[in-house]
Design a protein around this nucleic acid. Structure first.
Length: 243
DNA sequence: AATGCTTACAACCGCCCCTGT
DNA sequence: GACAGGGGCGGTTGTAAGCAT
């Protein structure tokens, strides 16, 4: 096995996000450890998986935890403990990492304060923490950016492809104030990724010795047949030369 | 305005579990 | 049953942004 000469760490750039999205949108997820190479990313498989699962995948909600969600988290944490994935399973569109962070940064303190107050003065449960809904209004921007995901689970990859082409979807390392005028150039960036991806396709698994190319191909085809209805016609540009 | 402190959250690390051989 | 590899999970860290002094 050839060791990666260099694996990047730290924050993901918009370009990396686009590459990962473009790759997964096109080929699906078949092996996190191998994918980064084919996707043109100098990242570990784990890093890619984390980025995708916690941030890039469609239909995730971030920020703006509702009061109901807060109560659910508190209740589930009480009953299940720090089993964030189990808790996340009961909160649609929320990631375990997001819930964990929210718990550690806000809810844990709130619960402690509430417990203390209920032991002494039950009337001051709010303490210094503002209503979380009110407090979270500062997250409005990010929730607006991601709110496009909120409507339903059924929108799937079709919208996702559009969102992937929407520069406002890249809060990490991007400028939230990116002007609408920039969308054209950003869209062109996406085309560049597409072009790059086609080049990259030539390096796909069938070229690699020792990999089960047929299985990968089948996997990819299954994924495609499952998701095909979601593709934006825009991406017809990516016609798979193997099909 | 400069500095230090706090908060929020993205990302990494290490461990564990599951699956295939 | 033993082993290896991949993926998932929870704890922790790094750091940017916001706030207070």
């Amino acid at each position: 096995m050839v060791r990666q000469p260099y694996l990047k760490k730290g924050s993901w750039s918009r370009d990396e996000d686009q590459k990962l999205i473009a790759y997964i949108t096109r080929y699906g997820i078949w092996n996190w450890n191998e994918m980064p190479r084919f996707a043109g990313l100098q990242r570990s498989g784990k890093s890619c998986r984390l980025r995708w699962v916690n941030y890039l995948r469609p239909n995730i909600r971030r920020g703006n935890f509702s009061r109901e969600e807060e109560e659910t988290i508190i209740h589930l944490q009480k009953t299940l403990g720090n089993r964030w994935s189990a808790i996340a399973a009961r909160l649609p569109q929320r990631t375990d990492n997001d819930i964990k962070n929210y718990w550690n940064s806000r809810l844990k303190k709130r619960v402690i304060v509430e417990n203390n107050n209920s032991a002494s003065s039950p009337t001051e449960t709010k303490s210094k923490t503002k209503s979380s809904v009110e407090e979270n209004s500062s997250d409005a921007d990010s929730s607006m950016m991601l709110g496009i995901f909120l409507d339903s689970d059924t929108r799937g990859m079709h919208d996702f492809a559009e969102i992937a082409a929407d520069t406002t979807f890249f809060p990490s390392g991007s400028d939230p104030s990116v002007a609408v005028d920039d969308h054209y150039s950003m869209a062109m960036d996406n085309y560049l990724v597409s072009y790059w991806e086609i080049l990259s396709f030539l390096e796909q698994p069938q070229m690699i010795e020792g990999l089960d190319c047929e299985a990968i191909s089948q996997n990819s085809q299954q994924w495609h047949s499952h998701h095909q209805q979601y593709y934006d016609p825009l991406h017809d540009f990516w016609v798979n030369p193997l099909i």
